[in-house]
Computed example of a mutant assay.
Amino acid sequence: MFRSNIHTIGVMTSGGDSPGMNPGIRAVVRAGLANGLRVIGIEDGYEGLLNARFKELGARDVGGILQRGGTFLRTARSMEFKTPEGQRKAIRNLNNAGIDALVILGGDGSLTGGMALAAQGVPVVGIPASIDNDIFGTDMCIGVDTALNTIVDAINKLRDTASSHNRAFLVETMGRHCGYLAVQAGIITGAEMVVVPEFETPFEEVATAVDEAYKRGKLHCIIVVAEGAKLNATELAQKLEEMKLGFDTRVTVLGHVQRGGKPTAFDRFLATRFGVKAVEFLLSGQTGVMTGLDGREIVPVPLSQVVSRPRTLSEEYMKMARMLAR
């Protein structure tokens, strides 16, 4: 295998946190050490990169973090980094610290920042971490499975209380631009309707779903709404309540609880695989790429492709959600 002249790698998390980031950091650190590299943790994302918040990480520094949600390196967004001046400052700080390459865990914005650094000669590998599963070039991102399990658990509990009171619950999930979490949760919890940003759902369809559920004698009705949908959960609930379709209507906004919690076994293993591969890619001379899950394999995906388009929601999932809700 080609051996690069990389001796020290930096690892950072950026943007919104997602469960599994800590196992990913751990894998980068220990894979780096196993290959004779120094590993430097960069705290607070790109903001920390601009302010040289660096600390060397050993094997023990990442012990006991597999089961922890969030990111022990912390994360932040930085407007300054988006400027040419900010990027020059970041590269200067990397050079001053002797950091030869960078592994970045984060979503679309974080990977866009990584591409900007790679274009200026910094060896970079990105790792997709986004609970929305909206990153092109990978079947799955770190954190999606954990967030989905959190949503499913919440809906299961809401169904219990909904059935006790003959209520319709509109459950708002995260997903400003992508309805992946909403549609997956809707399918696997048996929701009566899913509303997502990618496909317009007329209010009349939602009202019909609630009306038919009541007429069929159901004791509850669950509508899952992605936060970025044209009709938000609160607006839908107000309109449904005015129509008096039989159910009392309530709204539950799950919010940032979806980002937290212990990462599932799937997320821990995926993050670990991504972290190990990120180091392998760097040592084999591959840069400006992201680790992508393609079936069972981890493959390098050019960052230029990753940030050029969003990952689209399958129309098949929406058809499945409608068909199974009957």
Rank of each mutant, 00 (worst) to 15 (best):
A118R: 04
V125I: 13
F199H: 09
A207Y: 05
A182G: 07
F169Y: 15
Y180R: 00
L57P: 00
L66K: 13
S78G: 08
M115P: 01
D294T: 12
G246D: 09
R74T: 15
R326Y: 15
A27V: 05
G275Q: 00
V29C: 05
S308P: 11
A271T: 00
E235I: 04
G260A: 11
E200C: 12
Y317L: 15
R268G: 02
A52P: 00
P302S: 11
A97M: 07
D248L: 14
V125N: 00
V152Y: 04
L111S: 03
A119K: 06
A229C: 15
P197V: 11
R259A: 03
M318Y: 08
V194L: 04
I91V: 12
A213H: 07
T112I: 07
F247W: 08
F274E: 00
M21C: 03
D267N: 02
G186I: 01
V289T: 02
H177Y: 14
S110T: 13
L283M: 11
G10T: 04
I65W: 09
H256T: 01
K89F: 12
I40S: 02
P300C: 05
L73A: 13
V224G: 04
A185H: 13
D17P: 05
E212N: 15
V171G: 02
L49T: 04
H7F: 11
V194T: 10
R250F: 09
T150R: 06
I222R: 01
V152N: 01
V28W: 05
